[in-house]
């Protein structure tokens, strides 16, 4: 199994390590030429969504990525990845890939002093450690999308068919169950 990891900016190496530990092959996508046939899934990592979104456009990757996801390619977005996937960002005019029927709020917990770590119950997986870094949360889950986890009443994970997204960073912990869940979506 071969997973493409968007490597324009951010914490992509952490996702590579997690997936490699689970036996999946990974490849870094920095340019359009890297987004080839033969990818079984795609990871959109944490980082700055403004930077990643801008580079997606400039590298000509935005449309091909959108088309692939709309065509059913399994995708896993964490933090900035969730923002890229969202159809709507409530406090920001931008829309990036926009394939997932959710509304997110950027920097929803404020600045770095608002960053935190907690445990959260994820539907179908169980209790997981969750690291929130200047994180968004999901304000609304639309038709077709299903919430998977809440922290303090706010939705922090969701799935819509081939799309999985979390507001927190499973790649920053040693717990690989969400990555395993994603690989099972592909299998």
């Amino acid at each position: 199994m071969k997973i493409g990891i968007l490597a324009l900016q951010g914490a992509f190496i952490e996702h590579e390590r997690a997936l490699n530990a689970l036996g999946a092959e990974t490849t870094e996508i920095r340019r359009l030429a890297h987004f080839t046939d033969g990818l079984d899934g795609l990871v959109l990592p944490g980082g700055e969504s403004t930077v990643q979104g801008k580079l997606l456009r400039e590298e000509g990757l935005m449309e091909p990525v959108r088309a692939a996801i709309a065509g059913g390619m399994p995708v896993f977005g964490t933090c900035a990845g969730l923002i890229l996937l969202a159809e709507k960002i409530s406090n920001d005019g931008n829309v990036y890939v926009g394939t997932m029927n959710v509304t997110v709020r950027r920097n929803a917990y404020g600045r770095q002093l608002g960053s935190f770590r907690t445990d959260t119950e994820v539907k179908g997986i169980g209790k997981l450690p969750a690291v929130f870094i200047r994180a968004p949360y999901i304000e609304r889950v639309g038709e077709g999308a299903e919430e998977l986890a809440r922290v303090d009443g706010k939705i922090v994970a969701a799935r819509q068919g081939n799309m999985l997204a979390t507001a927190f960073h499973p790649e920053l912990t040693d717990d690989l169950r969400l990555h395993e869940y994603f690989l099972n979506m592909i299998r």
Binding site: L8, A11, G47, Q112, F116, R117, I133, R134, L172
Partner: peptide
Amino acid sequence: WELNKNLAQMLKGG
């Protein structure tokens, strides 16, 4: 410190 180190991880490649 872990959380603060994590923020720097998000800045990587930038």
